[in-house]
Each structure stands twice: as C-alpha cells, then as structure tokens.
Design a protein around this nucleic acid. Structure first.
Lengths: 117, 117
DNA sequence: TAAGTGTACTATCAGTGGTGGTACACTTAG
DNA sequence: CTAAGTGTACCACCACTGATAGTACACTTA
C-alpha cells in the first residue's frame, strides 16, 4: 500500500503524506479505516518512527485523518476534502498551462492532448 | 529583469535559472544578447557571486546560454530549446491531469477551464 | 497488568543552499 | 603593456532540514 521511492528527491515523510492523500481521495481507504501504527509502518518501511509520526501529523493538520490517543490514526470522513484537492490540482494545472501558452503552444493542441489521454 | 522571491521555498539559484529560461524562451532576451556579469548581478540582487555562478553554470549545462571566458555569458541561439521546454511543460501538465481525473473531475470540465482561460 | 497506541522530547548526523574570501586565467579598453 | 572586468575554481564556514536513535510518558484495551 505504501512504498518509498529513494530516487524521488522529495523527503520521505512528504511522499508518505502524498500517498495517503491520494489513497483516501480515491476511496481506496474508507472513512474510519485505521492506518498502520507509527511503529508498525516504520518497521515495514525500515525507516524511523519519527518520520512516520511527522507524516501522520501533517495528514491530521490537513484534515485527512483523525487521531485517538492510545488507539491509533483513522481516515477522516470529511467529503469537502475532495473538492479542496481538486482545486489544488486545477490551480497547478492552470499555472502550467499559462506558461506553455506563453511560449507558443496553442490551446487547441493542448486540449487535443487531454482528449486523447 | 531579475528578482528573488524570498517567500518562495525554492533555492535562489533555481529561481534565477527558471527566470532566465522563460525570458529566453519568450524572446525577451535575444540570441547572443549578453547576460549581466556574475559580479554585477550578485551586487544588484545583494547575494553572493557564487550563487549566480551556480545558476549560470546550470543554464549553460541546459544549453540556454554559452560562455566566453573573459568576456561574459550570452544567450544561446538554439531554437530546439523551445520544443524541448514545451514537452517538459506538457509532461507535467498531463501528469497532473491524470491525477485530477482519478479523483473524479471530468475531462469536459477541465477542457472548459482551459478554454475560458 | 501488560501490550500496543500516540506523543514529546533530546541529541546527533548528513546533505544542501548560501556566504565570504582568495586566486588565477582570460579579454579588452586605455 | 597595464588595468579593469570577465569567468572559474577553490576552500572554509554556517544555517536549515530531513532523518536517525533513544528515552519517556500518557492513554486504551485485551
């Protein structure tokens, strides 16, 4: 379910955050489903528990999971997250589209590439 | 022409590289036009010459500029760069598009956003 | 009670971005 | 030829960040 790409330049904790965000938003992980414990996931990935802790803290800060002390971390049920996430993606895409249009690509060409995707 | 955004999390030298790449690709800087000297630009931006040097070295590595020792750095005339850069952008855009489609956005909606841009 | 959970520390290390400074080879204007 | 301006190559140093290692404590539950 979770893996680390050491060729990826992004920090490990960030990769884990991204991975869980997409798992949750795509519905692979259902609301109130439990995430692996900090220590377990650390063991499984052969990394330090503190790194997992950092990732989980970030996921909680962003509202993707909630924490029950002594029990574990669970997927949040907030559906507004999908909409928020969509907007994040759209903003990024539009910024890039503006750039590529400025150096001479046509809208039509770009739209065509999306259509055939 | 060049400025630094200290709120930007990217390193300074990288910001300078990006800035010059777009200036060159948009034609704001013409082939064989001279760039500011390492020391001048460093003074102007109040940063260290080594940082500028790093940015210029990267620009040369990517083929955007060429260097004449003792004279300065100049904009390259290679037109194939535009095409290469376009592809870089398109790859990034398509990766993001795939993500946003996976979490439930429709192609039509996305295309519409580009059309009204 | 014991095991498993999150959480909060502290110390330490490695890599990277950036600064500050020196030095050298080259080109060109005077 | 000389001096000024150019790129280039170092070195030492510092700050920040990501990550590790270890300890400790409070909570929940079988």
């Amino acid at each position: 379910m979770i893996f680390i790409d050491y060729k990826d330049t992004r920090p490990i904790y960030e990769q884990i955050v991204e991975r869980y965000k997409t798992l949750i938003l795509k519905g692979v992980m259902q609301p109130d489903e439990q995430l692996p414990s900090v220590r377990n996931l650390a063991m499984e990935l052969s990394i330090n528990p503190n790194t997992i802790q950092k990732a989980y803290a970030e996921l909680e800060r962003q509202g993707f999971i909630y924490v029950v002390k002594g029990r574990g971390n669970f997927v949040s049920g907030d559906s507004g997250l999908v909409e928020k996430r969509k907007n994040e993606y759209v903003d990024q895409i539009m910024a890039l589209v503006r750039e590529v249009l400025e150096i001479g690509m046509s809208k039509a060409e770009l739209i065509r590439l999306i259509e055939v995707l």
